[in-house]
Simulated scan of single mutants.
Amino acid sequence: MATSKLLGYLESRKNLAGCGAGLLGLVLTFTGVAGAYWPLVVAGLYGAGALVAPPERVEVPGFGGEGAALDLLRADFARLRTYVTSVTPDLPPVPARRLTELTGLLDALLSHGGWERDPESLHILGRAVREDVPEAVDTYLGARWWTRLTPGGDPPEKHVVRQLSLILRDVRTLAAGVRDEKGLRQESLTRYLEDRG
């Protein structure tokens, strides 16, 4: 495990950019510019190169397709959950909480049966799992790095929180529908049992 992490870092963009900047430090040393402080110059340039390098991108998972079958959607959600778990540590606290709440609610809804009889709701779930959530997270991860290099404008955190809130609104509406349906069913059973007695 530690060996694979070390090898992963050696191949990372941050290490490669740091090594390139460190080589510039060695050139400055051999030309006499760095002087007696050459180790600090080389280390400082390596660190600066590693800091400005773009982060490694976690690829958005490929999904099974447009099929509306609940089993396909559940499999796609499993891939989405793996992706979300890998990128959540890179998110600020507020979007991370929104994303955790959203995936928890999607998990609960997809565990619920009967979506085959409601194609419109199944479409909303499929769109959230296959398009909306991965696009919002991936767009944020890309914009975050560029915002560091060119400050100004709206922070990407503001947009991703708003996007996740809008997706969460749609998913909460579906959850409220399930809750109401279950409540009506429970009331009907109570009335039936009372009338029977």
Rank of each mutant, 00 (worst) to 15 (best):
A2K: 00
T3G: 05
S4G: 05
K5F: 05
K5P: 03
L6H: 03
L6W: 02
L7G: 06
L7K: 01
L7C: 02
G8V: 05
L16D: 03
C19R: 06
G20M: 09
L23M: 12
L23N: 05
L23G: 09
L23D: 09
L23A: 13
L26E: 00
L26P: 02
V27R: 13
T29A: 09
G32N: 09
A34M: 09
G35T: 09
A36F: 04
A36L: 12
A36D: 11
Y37M: 14
W38A: 15
V42H: 03
A43R: 01
A43K: 03
G44V: 08
Y46D: 08
A48M: 13
A50T: 03
A50W: 03
L51I: 07
A53E: 02
A53F: 06
P54A: 04
P54Q: 02
E56Q: 12
R57D: 11
V58E: 12
V60H: 01
V60D: 00
G62N: 08
G64F: 03
G65I: 06
E66D: 12
E66F: 02
G67N: 13
G67E: 11
G67M: 07
A68P: 00
A69E: 15
L70F: 05
D71C: 06
D71T: 12
L72N: 04
R74P: 04
D76W: 02
D76S: 06
D76E: 03
A78P: 07
A78K: 14
A78C: 08
A78L: 10
T82K: 05
T88Y: 09
P89L: 14
D90I: 00
P92A: 14
L99Q: 14
T103E: 13
G104M: 04
L106S: 05
D107I: 00
L109I: 09
L109S: 04
S111Y: 12
H112D: 09
H112F: 04
G113R: 02
G114P: 00
W115E: 11
R117H: 14
D118Q: 10
S121N: 12
I124A: 13
L125R: 01
L125S: 05
G126P: 02
A128L: 02
E131F: 08
V133M: 07
E135D: 11
E135Y: 04
D138P: 01
D138I: 04
Y140R: 10
L141Y: 00
L141N: 09
G142D: 13
A143F: 02
A143S: 14
R144V: 12
T147I: 01
R148Q: 06
L149I: 08
T150I: 15
G152W: 03
G152I: 03
G153V: 10
D154A: 15
P156W: 03
E157S: 11
R162H: 12
R162Q: 11
Q163V: 07
Q163G: 03
S165T: 15
S165R: 13
L166S: 14
I167G: 08
V171F: 05
R172A: 07
A175W: 11
A176L: 14
G177R: 11
V178C: 10
D180A: 15
K182N: 14
G183M: 11
Q186I: 11
Q186K: 10
Q186Y: 08
S188P: 00
S188F: 00
L189C: 07
Y192Q: 14
E194Y: 06
E194W: 01
G197L: 08
